[in-house]
Design a protein around this nucleic acid. Sequence first.
DNA 1: ATCATTATTCCATTTTCCGTAACAATCTTC
DNA 2: GAAGATTGTTACGGAAAATGGAATAATGAT
Lengths: 304, 304
Amino acid sequence: MDLIRAMQVYVAVVEARSLVAAAAKLDTSNAAVSRHVAALEDHLSTRLLNRTTRRLSMTDAGQQFFGRAQQILSDVAEAEAIAGESATSPSGLLRISAPLSFGIIRLSKWLPGFIVRHPDLRLDVDLTDRMVDLATEGVDVALRIGLQPATTNVISRRLAPVAMVICASPDYLKRHGCPAVPSDLTHHQTLSYSYLSTGESWNLVDRQGQATSVRVSPIVRANNGDVLRELAVQGLAIVLGPSFIVDDDIATGRLVPILEGWSMTGFSLYAIYLSRKFLPAKVRVFINYLEEVSRVQSQESLKS
Amino acid sequence: MDLIRAMQVYVAVVEARSLVAAAAKLDTSNAAVSRHVAALEDHLSTRLLNRTTRRLSMTDAGQQFFGRAQQILSDVAEAEAIAGESATSPSGLLRISAPLSFGIIRLSKWLPGFIVRHPDLRLDVDLTDRMVDLATEGVDVALRIGLQPATTNVISRRLAPVAMVICASPDYLKRHGCPAVPSDLTHHQTLSYSYLSTGESWNLVDRQGQATSVRVSPIVRANNGDVLRELAVQGLAIVLGPSFIVDDDIATGRLVPILEGWSMTGFSLYAIYLSRKFLPAKVRVFINYLEEVSRVQSQESLKS
DNA sequence: ATCATTATTCCATTTTCCGTAACAATCTTC
DNA sequence: GAAGATTGTTACGGAAAATGGAATAATGAT
């Protein structure tokens, strides 16, 4: 069996939440789709999807496999793109998109080193908290923070883990009390990032690896982490934010981390770029550089 | 085309350095092997192998693709193993193998947390600098430090990058002078780790990403990093060692890092385990734990 | 209870893949 | 330098697998 094809079909089915919809999207027959999923389940000797004619849901194994299949397909696309890469040296204009706060705090620190290394390359940096469409907006590389992004026609490379921190102002905690367990959050005011796929339920794991999911109803949603941070500092609510945004406030005491025994896993910094057969050299060198600078920190930490 | 199959064949060809040898190993015809490689090259529209009837060498693209294909195959095997994992909770005896120095310095710090989390699991830790054969010696998980290991019937999961440091004692440097560029190493005494696949040539890259390869002729080879470190401290020669082994001596001044503008890339800590269709839960939870503890450090560093 | 929608299975057809064998190319050895 | 052995490539016939269309079974909404 063609495992890659089967994975492609499976991922499409999960994303479309239907076999026929996936078949339409993949421009093939529903018979083929059905057989691919069945063959995959047979190959793994595990049921991946609980399917009735009306509803489709993933089993635990299916969920696990979905994430891995997504990653593998992205890696395959990347391998294909890099193999067929044009041998020309990097030149021209490189268009980069990144979230606003991340761009200011981190990317700005990284870019100078890249510019020195590739002086012939001109950069066009577009900081926005919008979800840009790479193809239509002519963006070469987009940086995103979150769970693994969907991977249709796009390669996503995981660069570094991002720690998410739950915190609030001392003032807020004095007035509303400090949550001791995740379920306490239900009765608190919270803030959510607009594009967080986990929007209104936070999935936390404790130090024993035990997962719990808490439903929260954010009083403010925003597409910018700094706005949420500021609202939290002013005592409005509890915020879940990436550590690079809230760390300064935690260091100065304006925010206090809570529920420190629980953490949200799977958050990472991703570089996204179009899956083309011939990868431009400028994109490759930039991804390589990003990988390097975000790895240096890991190395430093492993030393001590 | 079956891309996974093609990758398997390609990797086998590269490892066997011959089409017929790969065909024999894969128990198939050389015609099939030849066609798979050709189809792969056609698919990528790139030549992967320069082949005459007598000699076989990888192109640059082939080299790139080899590494990625290796990784993808390992990830696929892992996805398959995890999908078919037994649902039973982890129990029984977990046999772990690790290099001696690494085991003492790092693993010993990590194990208590794991034991607390899984009190029902008994551990059998075997520290050795031998290359253990997982299947015959009944080892569940082996930790290795180096470049990506070969991946036949085995899953290798990259846990963390490992910085390699070139250093020597102040005494040695006073007597022999301090190398300023990598090529100076040729005229120096060096020490090599036995199982280092890069044995007698060190591949270094400078900060601009420019790679250079230096041939060295080690006066001592050993299968233990601490022995080499000790020899270097006593002023015998220059040593290339993982930072977690030499850092203490560097901090106290017994060793001095040299050629700091150059580094050796690709060295990582890997967890190796057998590619079985049904992955025992005890192996999965241990790999997860290792991943977590070696990632915590990266997260910490990204915060600041 | 009916109906529309969805997933699965059957069947004939097409496509792909494989091994054997002939062929071409290259290095070794005498 | 020629013979020989080994290696990679290509052609051919047969086997295996994948595909689309249609029939069938199953499910939830009206």
